[in-house]
């Protein structure tokens, strides 16, 4: 009797032993799930304004300081980094998944390093990585100091 040996969804989060693209794939899934959950929580949170200003203010305080003073801003910062990553990596995927900025078929040579995950694709990753750091930094400075850079 043959038995099933499926890796299952847990392998989405197993980028070890593969290349950078697999790492970015895992992070993309992770940030996507995090943003999805945040969106639900966000809609619930803002819907509390229907219960009047007293409830609203209480919810705001409860959510900002459930585990000490730094929890709210920290979560917001993480969500911001996740959003910046997810958006910019999404742009990269839109480009490369349409065959743009990829090499044309080439002749494989030992030790067989795949070119589709390197070359211009790597350049894209670096550019979008820099953009992500800038975006996240601007957001985090605003969250903590209220200064718009």
């Amino acid at each position: 009797m043959t038995i099933e040996n499926k890796k299952g969804w847990i392998s989405w989060f197993n980028p070890f032993k593969y290349g950078t693209d697999r790492w970015m794939y895992s992070l993309h899934r992770l940030t996507g799930i995090a943003l999805g959950l945040y969106l639900i929580a966000h809609v619930w949170e803002t819907s509390n304004i229907l219960n009047g200003p007293i409830t609203w203010n209480k919810i705001m305080v409860d959510l900002d300081y459930p585990f000490g003073q730094h929890f709210g801003p920290l979560i917001l910062s993480l969500i911001l980094i996740a959003a910046a990553y997810h958006a910019l990596n999404g742009i990269r995927l839109t480009i490369v998944e349409n065959g743009l900025m990829l090499p044309r078929p080439y002749r494989p040579e030992y030790p067989y390093k795949a070119k589709s995950t390197r070359g211009l694709n790597d350049v894209l990753k670096i550019v979008l990585g820099i953009l992500m750091i800038i975006t996240a930094a601007i957001g985090i400075i605003y969250i903590y100091t209220g200064v718009i850079v």
Partner: peptide, 23 residues
């Protein structure tokens, strides 16, 4: 395909299937 590139990483003949899929 979500282009995780794992297929091309492990290919023992350097076929780069991920490239084929995107093209």
């Amino acid at each position: 395909c979500h282009f995780s590139g794992a297929c091309s990483d492990v290919c023992p003949k350097g076929v780069d299937p991920a490239l084929g899929i995107q093209l």
